[in-house]
Design a protein around this nucleic acid. Structure first.
Length: 424
RNA sequence: GGAGAGAUGGCCGAGUCGGCUGAAGGCGCUCGCCUGCUAAGCGAGUAUGCGGGUAACACUGCAUCGAGGGUUCGAAUCCCUCUCUCUCCGCCA
């Protein structure tokens, strides 16, 4: 959420920044409502002042045994007026709040201009894609042949876009989860957390999924529970409504969770394989930091995610999302894209973002510095470290051998009981 | 699922018959004093949000005692609804 005060004082800056994202917004309408609200608020406050003052006098008079009937009658009218105006104020408040909740974050100045993924800027390429003599097989074909993925039976159990891992496939997924969590906790200094997989509306609103993107979420019928689309939601909300001590910052969390996405509107895209599922596993990295450091922290968070790919020996590149491709809540995002041989292209496997104070304001996550008055909003960041299903897919395609078996990356073998290949 | 109890500031904990209670008292914390170590003692300060005001302070208005609504000139205190927590019973991985 944007700071209404900032919008008020930097109207044209905000308008331009939002336009850069291609967001259609009624900033002028917001500005008018805000002005109306402030005027009305001041009116109401002076009425309240009068009532408070006179009520005190009534108390004094009554104690002295004097008559206060006139004052009481006057105040009855004042109270009625306050009540009436309060209704208008509440309506304005709601309208303004709704408008603010619907506005996306402002892109950081370093974010490239552009309208779509085509305008994203590649900033580095790491590793070399494997050279194969034949045509590399897609992971879904490999998975089927090896008997470690079974999308047909998954569809029978649930429906399209659900995975069913079997045998070494299931173990590979689990090994990756353990590997990633171990690296992030022991090498990168994150604290492991295991949060709820369902969250309420307030939590979803804090991180920005709601109110705008309800259609992307699975909701439990009859409950105020949504299945999480990413661990970002429960983990960022750990400190919702809290005032942290600056000495506690930065806070790094890593969490493994399944993620649930409706993928509404993505019909026909990635219909085969593990790339786009209603349910997938992900190890997430989340940071709460002081505003001064958040962009440095974005770099290290991204590096932390990249490290996993380096250890697995998978070729990847990092791109900076352009303003038009930025997610709703993000001020700046790096996507890490892994090389997928069968598709002959890089595919997103991690998205690392700095939200600045956008989520913190929605979730009311603040911190206090010693010696300084007042509080400030923290900056929140998160990134996948990594999407596990997509990592399995990448390993299968990049580490396939001519006979259709898969060579398990060295770093993963300790987590697979020493197993070196997955064969039929 | 059934029965009961509770929700106050960073924490603990008072709030009587509604009226200087933004909130006693204690702890913690900060600053100062004192004390030749540590400890103790003394004094002052110590919530958040939104406005006004200031060069910046100062100062000042309104709101907030789980949330929302009601009664009243006036509500932490009375009434209603909801949420959450705890205890007991039942059930259960």
């Amino acid at each position: 959420m944007l700071d209404i005060k900032f919008v008020r004082e930097n109207f044209s800056t905000v308008e331009l920044a939002l336009a850069a994202r291609g967001a259609a917004t009624d900033i002028a309408g917001l500005k008018n409502k805000d002005a109306d609200r402030l005027a009305l608020l001041q009116e109401i406050e002076s009425l309240r002042f009068e009532r408070n003052t006179v009520s005190d006098r009534i108390a004094t008079l009554k104690k002295a045994g004097e008559d206060a009937a006139d004052l009481m009658r006057d105040m009855r009218n004042v109270s009625a007026a306050i009540k009436e105006k309060d209704k208008t104020l509440a309506a304005l408040d709601t309208a303004i709040q709704e408008m603010l909740l619907g506005l996306p974050n402002l892109p950081h100045p370093s974010v490239p201009v552009g309208n779509s993924a085509a305008d994203n800027v590649e900033i580095r390429k790491v590793g070399t894609p494997p050279v194969s003599d034949g045509t590399p097989k897609a992971h879904w074909d490999l998975g089927e042949q090896l008997g470690i993925l079974d999308f047909e039976r998954a569809a029978k159990i649930a429906g399209a876009r659900f995975p069913l891992y079997l045998g070494a496939g299931a173990r590979l997924e689990r090994a990756l989860v353990n590997f990633m969590l171990d690296v992030h906790t022991t090498r990168h200094g994150y604290k492991e957390v295991l949060p709820p997989f369902m969250v309420n509306r307030t939590a979803m609103t804090a991180t920005g999924q709601l109110p705008k993107f309800e259609a992307d979420l699975f909701k439990l019928d009859g409950w105020d529970y949504y299945l999480i689309p990413t661990a970002e939601v429960p983990v960022t909300n750990i400190h919702q409504g809290e005032i942290l001590d600056e000495a506690m910052l930065p806070i790094f969390y890593t969490a493994f969770t399944p993620c649930f996405r409706s993928e509404a509107g993505s019909y026909g895209k990635d219909t085969r394989g593990l790339i786009r599922q209603h349910q997938f596993n992900k190890v997430e990295l989340v940071k709460f930091v002081a505003p001064e450091n958040s962009y440095e922290e974005l770099e290290t968070l991204t590096a932390n995610a990249e490290y996993i790919l380096q250890q697995l020996n998978l070729a990847y590149r990092v791109v900076t999302l352009c303003a038009g491709d930025l997610g709703f809540s993000a001020a700046k995002t790096y996507d890490i894209e892994v090389w997928m041989p069968a598709q002959n292209q890089y595919r997103e496997i991690s998205s690392c973002s700095n939200f600045e104070d956008f989520q913190a304001r929605r979730g009311n996550i603040r911190f206090r510095s010693k010696g300084k008055k007042g509080t400030r909003f923290v900056h929140t960041l998160n990134g996948s470290g990594l999407a596990v299903g997509r990592t399995v897919a990448a390993i299968m395609e990049n580490c396939q051998l001519p006979d259709g078996s898969i060579r398990i990356p060295d770093a993963l073998r300790p987590f697979m009981g020493g197993q070196e290949t997955i064969e039929k």
